[in-house]
Design a protein around this nucleic acid. Structure first.
Length: 491
RNA sequence: GGCUCGUUGGUCAAGAGGCUAAGACGUCGCCCUCUCACGGCGAAAUCAGCGGUUCGAUUCCGCUACGAGCUGCCA
């Protein structure tokens, strides 16, 4: 059996959409699972939509996510060039298009935009108005197919702009097989004579795609569901050339919470947005891998390597899936917890520095929240009290479950103040010894003693870590200052 | 409008004629605990509807509803 070859062929028209990233990931996985090759090809035939820097964006994301390609613009293994605009220069697409014209499978079309538009106007579709109304012609009427060889040559000689269209028969049906969706058959009369070569001489995506996939010996075409409807046209192209079709693996759509197509505005449309929101590349990859595919086991956390081993494209879902930010957040939290402390700090420290400017042990602060955050952007609001004691309501000292009141809290703090002032070893262990010693001595519950202290030094009901940890980080001077402040507020 | 595809809890999903219909996220409760988390335990919650086929349908077929994609000299 021939070696599996898949390709990711994006158009450089913007940032990397997560839908595209998932296609790229699946293409990568299909190839790698079978020990095949993953090819990167740039489909930049639409000069109008080209966005400066978009290629770099895409390349950067692929690098970050670990989707390393075996062949690409900078890795020519004999199938290059891998950039379509460069291939255009060789006149390759035009040659193939002309081959099709020779065979009668394609034809020159000189129709103007005006004529084409008039075809689409219901009012001009004389005689077509049925009771259903709204009759609109959406297909080209093969007007130029009837042009004689002489007429065509004359038009060409006169320098008239032209396109080359595929000639699809009006009769019969076309059938193709998708690995995921099965056999699909459509009436040829439903198919439009799509343009192969545009008037600027560039091939359309549809045409270049077929030519390049064949020339590059792509065995599996993995792409979004949105191409399902145009696949029959590709099938006809392959048949017209007498080429063998690749295996098609169409992927279900990824939607937002409203079941709509993911849009740029929804916040999870592209990879860089997600990164900015504090998500790790590995978590993003893991999450989108599970959108439309399941290993069939209970395992949900997969490294890229594990995905390669487990991925079987025969188990891809058919129905669209919602991009659930809540679950992504959970998964990201799992990845954060599993990060080595070193790598965790690389991401976390910058976030801590944004909030804490005082001379505290920032790494200790960062470690306090490691199991308490889901994204790195959650850090700020959890540690802000280190920088400055927030204004707080003394009602916070009243806690039924802890059995604390303002009075009992005041007493605890007053009792503890001199003991802490006398404490030299202001470490977690040192502080703990003092606090627990006091609690034991007074025969009160841990909460009765610790709640007031933690509240006093943090000014918050909820804090990452407990009283000892916070006090050690704040240091003796600052924590005592906060305790005195509390006594003052309660007094 | 036409064509194509889809529909298992709120979400991701397993399932592939007979099961109390897995598991995960989220939600709720309990345990742990100085708070919040982590961790542990448990609960509620699903086969879109209607007809067939069958001894028996989530699973097969049809229809309806709903959703989505395509219908570009975009990809």
């Amino acid at each position: 059996m021939a070696k599996v070859r898949t390709r990711y062929a994006p158009s450089p028209t913007g940032k990397m959409h997560v839908g595209n990233l998932r296609s790229a990931l699946y293409e990568f996985l299909v190839a790698k699972h079978e020990g095949g090759d993953f090819i990167f090809r740039l489909e930049d035939t639409d000069q109008g939509r080209f966005v400066e820097g978009a290629t770099d964006f895409i390349l950067r994301v692929m690098k970050k996510t670990g989707l390393e390609y075996d062949e690409g613009p900078d890795k020519d293994k004999g199938y290059g060039p891998y950039v379509q605009s460069e291939r255009v220069k060789s006149g390759l697409y035009m040659e193939y298009a002309k081959q099709l014209v020779e065979k009668g499978e394609a034809y020159y079309c000189f129709c103007t935009k005006e004529r084409l538009d008039s075809l689409k106007t219901p009012a001009n579709a004389a005689g077509e108005d049925t009771e259903e109304g709204g009759k609109e012609i959406r297909k080209y009427d093969k007007h130029c197919l009837s042009l004689s060889k002489e007429e065509i040559q004359a038009n060409l000689d006169a320098g008239m702009p032209f396109v080359i269209r595929q000639n699809i028969p009006q009769e019969g049906t076309t059938t193709f097989t998708d690995v995921n969706y099965g056999e699909i058959t459509v009436e040829n009369s439903e198919l439009d004579d799509m343009i192969l070569i545009k008037s600027d001489g560039f091939p359309t995506y549809n045409f270049a795609n077929v030519i390049d996939d064949h020339l590059m010996e792509i065995t599996h075409v993995v792409r979004g569901n949105e191409y399902l409807s145009s696949t029959p046209k590709y099938t006809r192209l392959y048949q017209a050339f007498g080429w063998q079709e690749p295996q098609y693996v169409h992927l279900p759509l990824v939607t937002n919470e409203e079941h709509q197509k993911l849009s740029k505005r929804s916040g999870h449309a592209n990879f860089e947005d997600l990164e900015d929101q504090g998500f790790l590349p590995e978590a993003i990859v893991n999450f989108i891998a599970l959108l439309g595919w399941s290993s069939g086991t209970e395992k949900e956390i997969f490294s890229l390597q594990e995905l390669i081993e487990a991925f079987d494209y025969h188990h891809i879902n058919k129905s669209p899936s919602v991009f659930d930010m809540t679950k992504l957040r959970w998964m990201n939290g799992e990845y954060i917890k599993n990060l080595s402390d070193e790598r965790y700090l690389e991401f976390a420290l910058p976030k801590v520095k944004e909030v804490v400017t005082k001379d505290y042990d920032l790494a200790k602060i960062a470690m306090l929240v490691k199991t308490r955050i889901e994204t790195f952007c959650d850090i700020a609001e959890k540690i802000d009290f280190f920088e400055e004691l927030p204004e707080y309501d003394t009602e916070m000292y009243v806690h039924k479950k802890m059995k604390t009141t303002k009075e009992s809290s005041l007493e605890v703090l007053k009792d503890l103040l001199p003991r802490l002032e006398a404490l030299e070893d202001y470490s977690i262990a040192g502080v703990e010894a003092v606090l627990m010693g006091y609690i034991a001595e007074k025969e009160i519950k841990n909460g009765q003693g610790l709640w007031p202290v933690r509240t006093a030094v943090s000014g918050k009901q909820m804090t990452p870590g407990g009283a000892y940890e916070i006090m050690e980080i704040l240091g003796k001077e600052e924590s005592l200052r906060r305790i005195r402040k509390a006594i003052e507020l309660l007094g």
